[in-house]
Design a protein around this nucleic acid. Structure first.
Lengths: 341, 341
DNA sequence: GTGAAAGCGCTAACAG
DNA sequence: CTGTTAGCGCTTTCAC
């Protein structure tokens, strides 16, 4: 850490007062020049900005937020940053907030309800101006805590009849149902589901079962995969499912990631898709049309969901009204080669 | 937002003072009970914790950090959260900090130097206790600003002879060289590179060229791809390269994502990999062994890099010495089917 | 358009 | 082990 720089004062950071002295004004004028440029004479402001540059002043957000009672932190919770489904939503949020004065603080909840609650405790001290949740918030205690705060909260990627505040989600049940109908129409009879089985997964399964039932079909095997999901896990899942249900003729995966792995696994095992086993995913990841065979999936507009959630939140932060605080995003079945028999 | 809760005071948040009154102690004792549990008698602490629960007290981090001069914010900069190469590093950082009192604040720099500098300005007001950078920091102004702060800074995924503080990276030049040697040994003669061409990309290209030169080969086409990278972009890239260099017999992509797309694109166009064109990627994404044909790549331990960077930073935050503040991560060539001719 | 005084909520420093 | 006092750096409020 040796540098030839003229190190300022090792101990005392530059404060408004220092800038004020250099610019020959009072501290409050410096503050105004930086926060409300219009309220300060052009010339004064120029002098102040020069003093800021000269002194290397950086506002202390702790002091400014403490005094003003305003925070520019938006807290974003996501179960996993590595999950590409969510990653595109995160991108959407980032894009929505670009150019705004807000600072996004990401926190990863890791699919655990307890951890989610703990995390909230480490984030709330920052008095976030708003909160984004990827997936509905499960812990009742957390829901209450957020409600008490009376700040804009938006839940995404899930659905609840009683959102904390705003909600931008889609129906996992409907997604499952669409796939169930599709499998039923195709005449598949030995059917497996693989993926999450709780929360969103449970809804998906219920819908899937409902869709299948209309064609007198049912789920013959539920293969739970709660943990991490990587392509390689899909390969294993495919092997396991074939072992447990040798005559399986169609598998619905809770995520495209597993489904992609399964397609690769099938090829490895010399099993033809879709002739011997049909495979479908969920989420509509960008590469699904390019997998060979192209992957049937339920398309969810993750990016748009994040972007729109960000916009809704921004509107509320700007004091505008949000007409429809609860939005159900449309989803659709993308029937492709992997189930085309 | 109507709830049957007994809403406390709509305007005045709960403060230490309120907790203190309920617990029958002074404010400072409350503060200590929460920050330094050992310094308060067991019994008193229990009473305080009960009062905290009863009142719903949440510490105001702005006030506490302002007074104590300590921040628990770690600022993490990453060019793109959607990039799976970096995502696993982010995961590593998250895991390293799990259970620590620090709060990670992610900021996305979007590959732009200017944006990177602007972002630093919005983050520095939070007086982060430490900074993690994915990729070396380019702007000299930013480097100086961070150096002035004298807080632990760690740069990852890149290399510079003059790191700001700590650096955990690998040599892109070496990665390129390894691939150049491999291509040369395989006897490829009409060679293309596709991917980033600046910064890390430039180093990779230089190394690649050097490796090839040892076998009297050279790069016949550089196909720049600076922007977003998705599998579909790799498909396009492959088509473009074939159009520009019809007799190309080997392509080195700056990321596995593009290489994977290229493999799929080749299959679509009826071009055999590796017989007609060999394809290699960079990064060692988890699914590369499973692509058909399996993808030759330069393996980089992204997760470990993030995790180790997090640990180094934590050690410094705890006041411990870090013996080797500049670490070069080993990388290796994973020769697989996509170049096996 | 600018300034003086006050205080946001917390915890360091010093006492006891 | 607990309390008193003061002040972190900023911006609100009120004044001119």
């Amino acid at each position: 850490m040796e540098s030839g720089e003229k190190r300022r004062r090792p101990n005392r950071p530059v404060r408004v007062e220092d800038v004020a002295r250099v610019a020959g004004v009072s501290p409050i004028t410096v503050s105004r020049a930086l926060s409300y440029p219009d309220k300060v004479k052009e010339e004064t402001r120029a002098r102040i900005l020069e003093a800021v540059a000269q002194t290397g002043y950086v506002v202390n957000r702790f002091a400014s937020s403490l005094r003003s009672g305003r925070s520019n932190v938006i807290s974003v919770f996501v179960s996993s940053l590595m999950n590409p489904h969510f990653a595109s939503s995160m991108q959407g949020i980032l894009d929505a907030f670009e150019g705004s004065p807000y600072q996004l603080m990401f926190a990863q909840t890791g699919y655990s309800e307890q951890f989610e609650a703990d995390l909230l405790e480490t984030v709330l001290p920052f008095r976030p101006a708003g909160v984004v949740f990827t997936g509905v918030i499960r812990s009742d205690k957390s829901r209450e805590a957020l409600q008490q705060l009376a700040i804009p909260v938006i839940e995404m990627w899930g659905y609840r009849p009683d959102p904390i505040d705003m909600l931008l989600g889609f129906s996992n049940h409907e997604g499952g149902r669409l796939m169930g109908e599709h499998f039923g129409q195709k005449g598949f009879r030995r059917i497996a589901y693989s993926g999450h089985t709780i929360e969103r997964g449970a809804e998906r399964i219920a819908g899937f079962r409902e869709g299948l039932a209309r064609h007198d079909a049912t789920i013959n095997l539920i293969h739970p995969m709660e943990g991490t999901r990587r392509i390689a896990d899909g390969i294993d899942a495919f092997r396991d499912i074939r072992a447990q249900l040798p005559d399986v003729d169609a598998i619905f995966f809770g995520t495209d990631i597993l489904a992609t792995g399964a397609v690769l696994g099938a090829e490895k095992m010399g099993v033809e898709v879709p002739r011997e086993v049909a495979i479908a995913g969920f989420g509509g990841l960008d590469y699904t049309p390019h997998v060979r065979p192209s992957l049937t999936t339920i398309h969810v507009s993750g990016y748009e969901m994040g972007r729109d959630a960000g916009r809704m939140l921004l509107r509320r932060l700007n004091g505008e009204r949000v007409d429809k605080p609860v939005v159900q995003q449309p989803i659709s079945l993308e029937a492709r080669d992997s189930t085309n028999r």
